[in-house]
Nucleic acid binder design. Structure first.
Length: 263
DNA sequence: GTTTCTGTTGTCAC
DNA sequence: CGTGACAACAGAAA
């Protein structure tokens, strides 16, 4: 699921669910998702507290408590947040539940447990966990992106999905952005022209404004993402066949006509 | 029935 | 810097 827009959706889900409620208790169904905290400390730290306004940073979700501690969530490939009604039975992959004082619960549901739940003792400790991330993809300026791309010798797609360079983009979004910008994903980042870098920045903005309100990468007919899993994927722009290859170990979809390899 | 592959996330060794 | 293995798991493909 989660790339930046999905996490933005989870942020809204968390905010509306927890909304001023007290956490009555914490249930850890599978401690395998706990990363910097024991079940006991999670229960003791969060029990009786309220969560403040949550914030998204790249693919991370931060939920400060009304104490010094900060809850951090990372969803990996299969994680999500759900707000359940009182008495809702535990779903197979519910790993952690924050049960609220009205019986509803915020649940961290995650099949594969590739990432998980962190608990920082303080705001600076939370920042420490996030350090090393590049600027958030929603707010990167044209100049910043220019410098970022110009200074890297790897392929442009690898740079876009590198969280240390730019935070928030994943496999689908990177393909979507490059397709809209008409730039081949395997182009060397430092050999892009200024015009191409500009197009990437513009496409980034358009893709974000389309995906953020939706809370996921849209798969509509005008989106490359809508074609990803089709048996014979066709370019929504030129109708030509899309190609599927592997780049940096990830499936990459692009249009050979709209995104020529050369130049 | 069983094995193999794939995947919206990462890290690590080479 | 790039590539591949791996982590953990389900569902589809072979």
């Amino acid at each position: 699921m989660p790339e930046l827009p999905d996490v933005e959706g989870f942020r809204r889900e968390l905010a509306s669910c927890v909304d001023g409620r007290r956490i009555e208790r914490v249930e850890v169904a599978d401690a395998g998702v706990l990363r910097s905290v024991t079940p006991r400390r999670l229960r003791q730290t969060l029990g009786g507290r309220r969560l403040a306004e949550p914030e998204r940073r790249g693919k991370w979700l931060l939920a400060p408590t009304d104490g010094p501690a900060v809850l951090l969530l990372h969803f990996g490939m299969t994680g999500r947040l759900v707000c359940t009604r009182p008495g809702e039975p535990l779903a197979p992959h519910d790993r952690v539940a924050l049960v609220l004082d009205d019986g509803r619960a915020l649940r961290f549901r995650d099949q594969r447990k590739l990432q998980g739940v962190w608990l920082a003792r303080s705001a600076p400790e939370a920042e420490e966990i996030l350090s090393g991330q590049g600027p958030d993809a929603t707010s990167v300026s044209r100049g910043e992106l220019d410098r970022l791309l110009s200074g890297r010798r790897g392929r442009v797609k690898s740079v876009l999905v590198d969280q240390a360079a730019l935070a928030g983009l994943g496999n689908l979004l990177a393909d979507e952005i490059l397709w809209r910008a008409r730039v081949h994903p395997a182009r060397k980042a430092d050999r892009l022209t200024a015009a191409e870098r500009h197009r990437i920045h513009a496409a980034l903005g358009r893709v974000m404004s389309g995906a953020l309100p939706a809370g996921h990468v849209p798969a509509g007919p005008s989106w490359l993402t809508g074609q990803r899993d089709a048996p014979e994927p066709a370019c929504p722009r030129c109708r030509g066949p899309l190609r599927r290859t592997r780049l940096t170990g990830r499936t990459t979809v692009w249009c050979p006509r709209c995104q020529p390899e050369g130049e």
